[in-house]
Design a protein around this nucleic acid. Structure first.
Lengths: 183, 183
DNA sequence: CTGAATGTTCAGTAATCATTGAACAAACTA
DNA sequence: TAGTTTGTTCAATGATTACTGAACATTCAG
């Protein structure tokens, strides 16, 4: 007879108000759907969604599998993906064998960088198209010129926008240093 | 015995330099792959890609099916999708029964608008998550606050960026009025 | 060493999504 | 009216992708 000890794994959900878990899982599902809309696997979105609201912020491999009702394999693959695209990170506590995952601070500027890369790819495609039309009448070239120009514009401007965001954030945290983390 | 009259349909490709078609179809495939990366059906990308380089810029239903080796059904569904998301438009010539499609001018600011809508959805999700954590310690809320704040920032700034683009374009075309379409 | 705990990899499957092709509809011609 | 052209819809197929679960590592404890 085998008795599994799961108490440590369940606590994260059951320690809460019994009304909460349902809403939490609903949130997790919604993040899953959003990720799917952006072209990422739904399960990667579920993991990310849970890490956004979990307590504590660090969650183990096993805890994720238990709460999201997913196989170990799935968790392993999807956390690898999320780490690779810069949205979460692995944290290992000293003296602990198991790994934990958490949302990576500034995960979002990582996403912005990816978007910029995509925009660059679109600009390059437009340029490739223009070389195909180099002998064509100008009115036929216009379509691709517009595509190239707007992507070049965004490629130039989005990094500046990101920089401005970083600056705003930094100055905000200076005038308000760590007040949030006391309570 | 049935004889199909296809000559009118083939002309669009065969009228060109015999080296070109291969490169053209390569371009079309690349656009297809890009669309797939962004989460849209590959065939919709092929149609869009061909409409970027086709001569004339307007292409009929039948011409698209022939050149892209796709079924009528596929073309019908995918053009509907592309019209719905604002990337192409249907043009009908007076006295002609068939419809033509072409790249919609300013297709790209349409795409920007969609991106902004997606960003708004992410911000709303973050807010929903924050209400789940309203009684949680502040350090747990930070993850979602960062998510909300950056998306609110982009939601505010991207429309301004788009406006600036429109302005730049308009002033460019005033100082250089239609010079491109003479040649 | 053996056994337990933790992760990863990968072959097989389940589910999803794009695409086809045939049936249908509408609009014009004769 | 019947026949032709043009386009749409939709059930069925094919292809792709996510996901599982079992086998395989690795590391620690005894």
């Amino acid at each position: 007879m085998i008795v599994l000890e799961l108490s440590n794994v369940k606590s994260s959900v059951e320690a809460l108000n019994p009304e909460q878990p349902f809403e939490q899982m609903h949130f997790v599902e919604e993040v899953g759907l959003m990720f799917e809309m952006v072209g990422l696997p739904r399960m990667s979105g579920r993991i990310f969604g849970w890490l956004l609201i979990s307590n504590p912020a660090q969650q183990s491999h096993a805890a994720l599998a238990e709460i999201l009702q997913a196989s170990k394999g799935s968790i392993s693959t999807m956390t690898r993906l999320l780490i690779q695209i810069g949205l979460i990170e692995r944290v290992s506590l000293p003296g602990e064998r198991r790994d934990y995952f958490q949302i990576k601070p500034h995960a979002w500027s990582q996403m912005t960088k990816q978007r910029i890369a995509q925009i660059a790819a679109f600009r390059q495609l437009a340029e490739k198209g223009l070389t195909l039309l180099e002998d064509a009448p100008p009115h036929l070239q216009k379509r691709l010129q517009e595509m190239r120009d707007i992507h070049a514009f965004l490629e130039r401007e989005l990094p500046l926008l990101d920089e401005r965001w970083e600056l705003e954030q930094r100055s905000l945290h200076q005038s308000n240093p760590e007040r949030l983390s006391q309570s």
